[in-house]
Simulated scan of single mutants.
Amino acid sequence: MERKRSDEKSRRKPSGAAVPRAELTAALYRAFFEEWAERGFSALSLERVAARAGAGKAAIYRRFSSRLAFADAALSALGLGIALPKPERATLEEDVFDLLLRIRAVLRHPLARRILPDLHAEAARSPEMRAINDRLAEARREQAQNLLDRAVRRGDLPEMIDRDLALDLLVAPLYWRMVVRGQTPTRAELMVQSKAITAGLKASIGDVGRT
Rank of each mutant, 00 (worst) to 15 (best):
F64Y: 15
V19H: 14
A18D: 12
G209K: 10
T25R: 12
A27H: 07
D95I: 02
E159M: 08
E8W: 10
R154L: 05
R21A: 15
I115P: 01
E38W: 03
M1P: 03
A74F: 04
S204D: 15
I115F: 01
A37F: 04
K4T: 13
R39P: 02
D95K: 00
T184G: 06
D164G: 15
L169C: 11
Q193K: 07
R140H: 05
R140E: 01
R30N: 10
E159V: 13
L165C: 10
T91G: 01
V192C: 09
E35V: 01
L111V: 11
L147A: 04
A31K: 12
S6D: 15
D72F: 14
R89C: 07
V179S: 05
P158R: 10
P85R: 15
Q183R: 14
R150H: 02
I161D: 02
V49W: 11
P117D: 05
R52F: 13
R114D: 02
P110K: 04
V96E: 02
K9C: 11
L100N: 01
V19W: 08
F33M: 09
E159H: 12
E142C: 00
M160C: 09
T91W: 04
L169I: 14
L46Q: 15
A121K: 05
L68T: 03
D164P: 04
N146K: 04
R67K: 15
E88V: 09
V19R: 15
M129L: 03
K86S: 13
F64S: 10
A22C: 06
M1S: 14
M1W: 11
R104N: 01
G79D: 03
R21G: 13
A121L: 09
R89A: 07
V179R: 07
R21H: 13
D7W: 05
A124S: 08
A26R: 15
A53I: 02
R108W: 00
A18Y: 14
I205E: 01
L116F: 13
R108D: 00
L84R: 15
Y175H: 11
A90P: 04
P87V: 00
D156F: 08
D95A: 00
A144C: 13
A196W: 08
A123C: 00
